[in-house]
């Protein structure tokens, strides 16, 4: 059996990579993908703790997170498509109309 702490370690590493993706990349689609990576890292930690505590409820929570993430991706990508249509760019630095 693999100790839970190994999974938590892996989850922390993946989450950090996701954060770096959001901070470093400027392609809006890659930024969005990094957000998904962070969600997955959090899910992994949840499932690891669920096994340690034998709590099926945590698996239910992960199921809900995955479903809502699917809805979020659909709406987010639709937003990206309509931004791209009006601005003709996928660079987050170019989308600064709201900047004061």
């Amino acid at each position: 059996m693999v100790p839970t702490s190994y999974y938590v370690l892996l989850s922390a590493i993946l989450f950090t990579i996701g954060v770096l993706g959001v901070l470093l990349r400027r392609n809006v689609i890659v930024v969005f993908m990094s957000v998904e990576l962070m969600l997955n890292a959090a899910n992994l930690a949840l499932v690891a703790f669920a096994r340690e505590r034998l709590a099926v409820e945590a698996q239910v929570l992960v199921f809900f997170v995955i479903t809502v993430a699917a809805a979020e991706v659909a709406v987010g990508l639709a937003l990206l498509v309509s931004i791209f249509r009006t601005k003709r760019t996928a660079d987050v630095d170019e989308v600064s109309t709201l900047k004061g």
Partner: peptide, 13 residues
């Protein structure tokens, strides 16, 4: 990560 779920005995996930 899906393989990880299998290792964590969560086959449905």
């Amino acid at each position: 990560i899906s393989v990880m779920y299998l290792l964590l005995s969560a086959p449905f996930l």
